[in-house]
Write a protein that binds this DNA or RNA. Structure first.
Lengths: 224, 224
DNA sequence: ACAACGCTTCGGTTATCATCGAAGCATGAA
DNA sequence: TTCATGCTTCGATGATAACCGAAGCGTTGT
């Protein structure tokens, strides 16, 4: 039964930690639940077998996310029922201050805006994503040429995929990496839409006023 | 946590047995779950404390129902999640053949049509129901006078409430009892809309063709 | 009044499962 | 290669809770 999976306190803590749609590593989920990694591993495999979460291997880490918005919906309903008969549990917000919004991940855009950009591109069918692999559609090709003056031959590069999904530590959701991700970030800089922070070593990306506006026009979110 | 309540197999069986909106006695729920009454009692008090079910005392029985359509919704969602990862449990339909539809409960109408009638009256604000108590509204008074030629003075009767909710064993939902319930049933008989079955001892109520049509016109269901 | 019935409460037994220590396997870095 | 890290598997321990028998309580019917 799937309800018994959610019933366990440790597993419930893990699931609520995943409720915001981000992915977390097994260790982090263990810490969220206040249990050791061994115990967490057992719980995670059960949750995966129950179809509530999906794993994604990245390096030697193992990220987990909720398989589906439906799962989040049921969990939310469950929390709603719990709310009116007793006390509900509250989730503390994240702790990072500024660079959640936009930063450099190697050479491409990460953070809130990076995730938002890929979300928007996926929703508009500019790209098609299957797990880790992202491919550019015909519409996407036209979009890039028209709005950002990026052509396909600019993207040709040996030994590096054009598109790639990258999972980063702040949003824990995918953003666009690969040659395309790097090229788009470079274009943003050239257009003076954004610039890396001046302080050495900082990975923060500052968007200009017009840059923010133009970015929103292209990849504006419909609420997230 | 509310999920742990649903997590237990015995309790899950009880809840799914209640999913159709009908109320069941503690003993029947015990049999549904395949446990003894003692164990069932423990489970039921926990479910009640969790706000998932509501009790209703009737004689020496104790009927339980889901507190809310929301509860049923969450349960349904839970079952949906379980359906795609594993096998879901199916619920066998009821076993009664004919008199589920309409029968005499003491002196008033019970069964499917009885429940449907009260539902319709409640929905049209002809009556207002608070738990067990039902009171006739002004619209209800006009409705009875116009369509069934029933006036309030016909209902006056010492030591018997005008309206009362009665829970019967086939539909396990409320139907209308009290003086009004009896008077309406009597009126149906006078109008040749319905008649008690001829076989002695039978409680079946047979509706005539025109009776069925007129009844549907007054209390037609909008899907239940 | 007494008996039958439905349900609850009280103890004690049993089983399931969460939990952690230690060892085993991967992947990435030096 | 060798080491470190992240995660999993194995085995044993422990606590939570489901379960039932027996007794108690309230209601209904005779």
């Amino acid at each position: 039964m799937v309800a018994s999976l959610v019933g366990d306190p440790a597993r419930a803590n893990m699931l609520t930690a995943l409720m915001n749609g981000r992915a977390l590593t097994a260790s982090e989920l263990a810490q969220e639940a206040g249990i050791t990694p061994q115990t967490a591993s057992s719980h995670l495999s059960k949750l995966e077998a129950g179809g509530l979460i999906e794993p994604e291997k990245q390096g030697r880490h193992r990220y987990y996310r909720l398989t589906d918005p439906d799962v989040a919906g049921v969990l939310e309903g469950l929390a709603g029922l719990a709310a009116r008969a007793g006390h509900m549990r509250v989730r503390t917000g994240p702790k990072d201050p500024a660079l959640r919004r936009a930063r450099i991940c190697y050479d491409h855009l990460a953070g809130d805006l990076g995730v938002q950009m890929l979300d928007s591109m996926r929703e508009r069918r500019l790209v098609r994503q299957k797990k880790q692999d992202i491919e550019l559609t015909a519409e996407g090709e036209r979009f890039l040429a028209k709005h950002l003056q990026i052509s396909l031959d600019m993207l040709a590069h040996p030994r590096r995929p054009v598109c790639k999904a990258c999972l980063d530590w702040s949003e824990r959701r995918h953003h666009l990496a690969g040659t395309l991700g790097a090229t788009m970030m470079q274009r943003f800089t050239e257009l003076k839409w954004a610039a890396r922070d001046v302080t050495p070593g900082s990975r923060v990306v500052n968007f200009t006023r017009t840059g923010e506006k133009n970015f929103a026009a292209l990849f504006g979110n419909g609420g997230d």
